[in-house]
């Protein structure tokens, strides 16, 4: 294990009391959402994690508690190390503080998790839907949101489905 990474993890563990998860040499720290901004600032300024690779979320509905995990994938160009932060967020009015001030490219990623999961980024400068239409209802990547599957047309049910299909009249 990289010394720099070890040091960063130890420092964070000491200051914030986080849980560690290792799988295939990938290190994840499970942090509380309130600490995310502080930890990110510490990692960027103190340990050279200068790039936010990816920011996303996972939904563990129905049995997961807390329901969501917000995932921050950080990368340090100088030391060539990856570190992942996972912030559990509960179902009740889910929200995380924005890290836009630390990594400017978190802006769109946070808009995306608002659009897709309904997790609000508090203090975000421009929290609008980004991928779905402006008046879309619901948050598609939540597990309780249906896929919107349409029945496939075969020979035996072609006419039946054809009748239901909303073809446009000129």
């Amino acid at each position: 294990m990289n010394n720099k990474l070890l040091k960063a993890i130890q420092t964070i563990e000491k200051r914030f009391g986080v849980e560690e998860h290792i799988f295939r040499d990938e290190y994840s720290l499970i942090v509380s959402p309130g600490d995310v901004v502080e930890i990110c600032r510490l990692l960027r300024d103190g340990f050279g994690f200068d790039m936010l690779s990816s920011l996303t979320a996972v939904d563990y509905w129905p049995e997961g508690d807390p329901r969501f995990h917000v995932i921050y994938q950080l990368y340090s160009i100088e030391n060539n190390i990856n570190l992942r932060l996972r912030a559990p967020v509960s179902d009740d009015n889910p929200a995380i503080p924005t890290i836009e001030g630390i990594y400017p490219n978190a802006n769109w990623h946070e808009r995306e998790i608002w659009d897709m999961f309904g997790i609000k980024a508090e203090g975000h400068s421009d929290l609008r839907r980004i991928l779905t239409p402006y008046d879309w209802e619901g948050h598609p990547l939540r597990k309780d949101y249906p896929l919107g599957y349409e029945e496939v047309q075969f020979t035996f049910n072609a006419d039946e489905i054809d009748a239901k299909k909303p073809y446009v009249k000129e």
Binding site: F23, R24, E26, S28, S53, S54, T56, V58, I71, Q73, N82, R84
Partner: peptide, 20 residues
């Protein structure tokens, strides 16, 4: 029930897959 992040270099830049 684990998760991995796999970055590769696409012609445009870093293409990463987070798979859980």
């Amino acid at each position: 029930a684990e998760y991995v992040y796999m970055p590769v270099s696409s012609p445009r830049g870093e293409l990463g897959v987070y798979l859980e």
